[in-house]
Amino acid sequence: MSTYEIFVSLAKVGLKVTLQVTFSAAVLALVLGGISGLARMSKHKIIRFISSVYIEIFRGTSLLVQLFWMYFVLPMMGIRLSALTAGILAIGLNFGAYCSEIVRSAIQAVPSGQTEACIALNMTKVQRMRRVIIPQAFVMMIPNLGNQLIELLKSTSLVSMITLTDLTYQANILNATTFETTKIYSMLLIIYFIIGLPLSKGMKLLEQKVSEGRV
């Protein structure tokens, strides 16, 4: 098998799943991270408690363990998830916990004077968060979220271990059938690296765009 054929085979079969899992899990992580990050700062004890339990559990146990748990254990409880759903859910929940810390620390990093100015202008808490605090915190989050996005992309390779046909899974299949081991895994590394490039570039552009004029 030529290097080109290997590339085509990987791209044709595995790329779609890798991108699909990356994108869906990233959206899920961002939503969960935002909600649990805000919930962690709630004045209600119960809400704070629930969100810290979520964050600590998903940060404290391994992603692969979480993935196996969702794929192998949940069916025993009658919850049967497809490998794709289990993969997206596990990665989204796991990275959501990390994102929540990013969200929380960025919000806490907005100077307290901003809050005081909002009170003096008689804004409600919701208005203050939506119009003043979160837009400023968001700019601070972007570099960290960008790093997490790359980590998330890398972690999607784990779904190959629950039989989902992503890039890595397809590489393993090719390896078992063609024995072009060196070419296959080199190509696989290069493909992951290349997918990551526009992601980091995109986050850099986003950062520039949202911080325009504010230096």
């Binding site: 901003q114 003096a120 804004m123 119009r131 504010r214």
Partner: peptide, 25 residues
């Protein structure tokens, strides 16, 4: 109130800074 350290909203233009509260509040 006017503060010693201004506390302008850094992510809004001058005009938006002044318009913000009349619109939202």
């Amino acid at each position: 109130m006017v503060f010693q350290h201004f506390y302008l909203f850094p992510h809004m233009t001058v005009l938006k800074n002044v318009m913000e509260a009349p619109v939202t509040v």
